[in-house]
Design a protein around this nucleic acid. Sequence first.
DNA 1: CTGGATCCTATAAGATACTG
DNA 2: CAGTATCTTATAGGATCCAG
Lengths: 133, 133
Amino acid sequence: MGEAEADRCGPGAAEQASACTVREALDRVGGKWAIGILIAASAGPIRFTELERRVEGISRRMLTLTLRNLERDGLLDRHVHPTVPPKVEYTATPMARELYESLVALTSWAERHREAISEARAAYDSAHGRPPA
Amino acid sequence: MGEAEADRCGPGAAEQASACTVREALDRVGGKWAIGILIAASAGPIRFTELERRVEGISRRMLTLTLRNLERDGLLDRHVHPTVPPKVEYTATPMARELYESLVALTSWAERHREAISEARAAYDSAHGRPPA
DNA sequence: CTGGATCCTATAAGATACTG
DNA sequence: CAGTATCTTATAGGATCCAG
């Protein structure tokens, strides 16, 4: 996930820097599963298997990978209980909960315009040759 | 870009639906270049070549592809002036401008925590075996 | 239960060349 | 100027199996 661009995001004008910052954010959160995991983990500590159930459709591999990335970026705390069988709990950090709040704006935008976008697509596809499939 | 999931985003609980909605938004805007283009086009009508300069690093192909997707989703208006040589202007739709506003929250989050995230990464990488590159 | 390791496929994206 | 077409590479993500 855009590792090389994370630290220095390239020189540029003000708008360039702005676009770059947004992309930095999306590079951390823009994966297919990161947001689902963050949402699930924002409600409180949650276990690996519980996440696997809540974030429907995720593979075990991607769950592990995404959890590691989020932990690495300081968005999730990982707490291992030294029991057998092992029990691991993930919790969103305060920083991540701030992000969660920010995402509400995006979410409500998507909800507000879901239909308009769908119609725009249909109009575009029928205006151009594409099959309605 | 997640075409199959765009229309019906799968059944699920309330949090699932929320996560799904966010991902719907990111599926449209989460590409590598969409946001840069939207930002550049939110200031007013902008031409193809101008975009190519402003969104630094983008290839002509990706510019075209991303423009088509954004137009298809109703986020950009494309106006062709029937002149020679051709002149095409792209403008963010009102819906896209709303999105732009929403992204400010994300942007400011990324700016606020840029350093904390960088430190979290360094700490994680040194705690685990990874080379500091 | 919580992963890690490996293999594989689909897709995003870059490079390059051509065109009305 | 504003694209399209083709080729190629990099990477995300899925499937599966193994392990402490």
